[in-house]
Write a protein that binds this DNA or RNA. Structure first.
Lengths: 350, 350
DNA sequence: TCTGAACGTGAATGCGCATTCACGATCGAC
DNA sequence: GTCGATCGTGAATGCGCATTCACGTTCAGA
């Protein structure tokens, strides 16, 4: 390494320039890859840059270019939910990887309550970020719409609230739920119930819709008494399962809208003396790591959270660079991973 | 809301100033809470700020103050590990909450491999962040030391490599492992084994040390054949458990250095026909959510990841503000949460 | 009444950088 | 040999802000 150690100020372009005997403009050209620089001069400048350990000051650059090269990831959610659920973490991983590859920074914004979320809008206006990614939206969150109004580029993971003109990447929740439910029906189950997710989240609504559609397709009645509701959490899965067992003791299958809820449901079934899959077949959703840890291993609908993360970044950058207003919708397919909990034949990549 | 909609530039101080009929300096004083401003003038300026939707431009502010009001969270790790493990996510949650409270931004930096990690140093020099928090360090990672050399404030979650002069917050891994192992011994187990973590991570080393210390305290021989090693993952827990069963078929207790490994171990034990806790008592470490999902529920050593996150932020800000070079070490206590897997009497807050 | 301290304010400066403009040098075409 | 075009370079400018300095006013003390 070079001379620069200790607590000195970082070198500036001007310092590099005088060290190399050129003007600051030329250093700027070298740094930014402008081709109109004599190769000899370029080498000299590059040597001094290395020697002085020069690194462009991002604040100064942002000030003049009006680009921050960073994107905000906004997670408007009581954090308990987020962090109990590996799915969200994996999406984040996908986002992080894609941003790294493009040398963009990831600013993580967790709004733990509504009040904090209101702070976000002005905050995001400050030029901190070139655009933002939101996911795990609840109900009719107005934030994406507002931000877009203000000219901030936004993309959303999961379906945005109705009427919000915004690009998004979503899992095919309806299709996945349909596949899971149909599978249970094909296995000969007669009373196919569901533990649905929260109905203020589109993922919850869509998975329930897919379940109902499958029943309808099979010519089965979609009795509302076959449905109990939870909040995607383990605890809510337990109480919903108890409720359902009390209401329909004759149930022999249950499609659960998340693996976390399913893990709770399995425990309740066990306590109630029902054997899985013999007495009750269970299918989850997410194919999260916990699907492998339950007993028996959980049949589940696999999403691709990393792919979702990558797609979100691509989508956002498309908007930032093109500055076009064309809304894009990306829907990611799902895959039913069959394991022990449904009594079917396990798929190969379980 | 006010006039400002659409895609216009954000308002600047100068615009607010002329709208309010004062100088830009005065607006700056109002924005930054300088008391030497006439209350009447202050009100007028504040009204214009609201009306125009003015938000200070952070790049400009950073350029002159040399403070970015953001901190980097560096996670040097193949992300698979991070995101399988709820512990890391919870620390992140603690960090996020503490930063939010102080109106600081969180820049998340996940270095997925060594090469990416090398990029970090120059990157962090660019003035992006006022300081950084690292955790989940492997082996003798030189990064914290290097950054500190360069005058970047760093704090570390978990013990830093030997010889690195850096403040840190750590869980009392030795004490926790000691308590877990002692508990097993007190329950009358005779062949108390351990599945240790990776020995290039201090958490792995310390938990093994605590285990050995407990054996020694109890006057039991610390036979190396009672130890198998894993990587804190579920899969490595499975193979380590198999190895141990083959080597010491007479084992009747196992202290596992992480819950994730323990969940794998439980499955292997079940397949091998050993009943838990009757034949083999199991204790994990972390008290992560999966401890509740195993069958039987896992006795585990509880850490306080959120508290660790908060402490990390406090520690870092202390350094940033005081600019002192005094190293601080914060050690967080653990708590043994007794559940079904060890055959002891469950604790109340299990 | 005079002095000087405290107060409220505005003009000017510079943080580090990208960019524009101007300028001399080199080159090809005629 | 001249003229316009192209190329490589440097000086100057401004991004939006905090801060310093200077200036006029007010007020208390003598």
């Amino acid at each position: 390494m070079g001379q620069r150690v200790g607590y000195g100020r970082a070198a500036t372009m001007g310092e590099v320039a005088s060290a190399a005997g050129v003007s600051q403009s030329t250093v700027s050209r070298v740094v930014n890859g402008n081709p109109r620089v004599d190769p000899e001069v370029r080498r000299k400048v590059e040597r001094e840059i290395r020697r002085l350990g020069y690194v462009p000051n991002m604040a100064a650059r942002t000030l003049v270019t009006r680009r921050s090269d960073s994107v905000g990831v906004v997670i408007p959610e009581p954090a308990s939910r987020i962090f109990g659920d590996p799915f969200f973490a994996q999406v984040l991983r996908g986002i992080s990887g894609a941003l790294n590859a493009r040398r963009q920074r990831l600013v993580l914004l967790i709004a733990e309550d509504q009040e904090q979320e209101r702070w976000l809008a002005p905050y995001l206006m400050a030029g901190h970020v070139d655009g933002i990614i939101m996911y795990s939206l609840h109900g009719d969150d107005p934030l994406p719409g507002e931000l877009r109004q203000r000219g901030i580029q936004v993309v959303v993971g999961g379906l945005p609230p109705r009427g919000t003109r915004v690009s998004y990447v979503d899992t095919d929740n309806v299709g996945g739920a349909h596949a899971a439910t149909s599978h249970l029906i094909r296995l000969g189950r007669k009373v196919v119930t569901t533990l649905a997710g929260p109905q203020d989240m589109i993922a919850g609504v869509d998975r329930l819709a897919g379940y109902r559609e499958a029943l309808r397709t099979a010519g089965l009645p979609a009795d509302e008494r076959l449905v109990a509701y939870g909040q995607f959490t383990r605890e809510s899965g337990m109480s919903a399962m108890s409720e359902l067992l009390a209401r329909r003791p004759d149930l022999d299958a249950v499609f659960v809208a998340s693996d976390l809820m399913a893990s709770g449901a399995l425990e309740v079934l066990r306590s109630a003396g029902r054997r899985v899959p013999r007495d009750v077949a269970v299918v989850g959703f997410d194919d999260s790591p916990i699907a492998l840890m339950t007993d028996p291993p959980l049949t589940s609908v696999r999403q691709s959270p990393e792919v979702m993360g990558r797609e979100l970044v691509e989508l956002l950058n498309g908007h930032i660079e093109a500055r076009d207003q064309v809304i894009r919708k990306v829907v990611l397919d799902t895959q039913l991973i069959v394991r022990g909990s449904c009594g079917g034949k396990p798929s190969t990549n379980a």
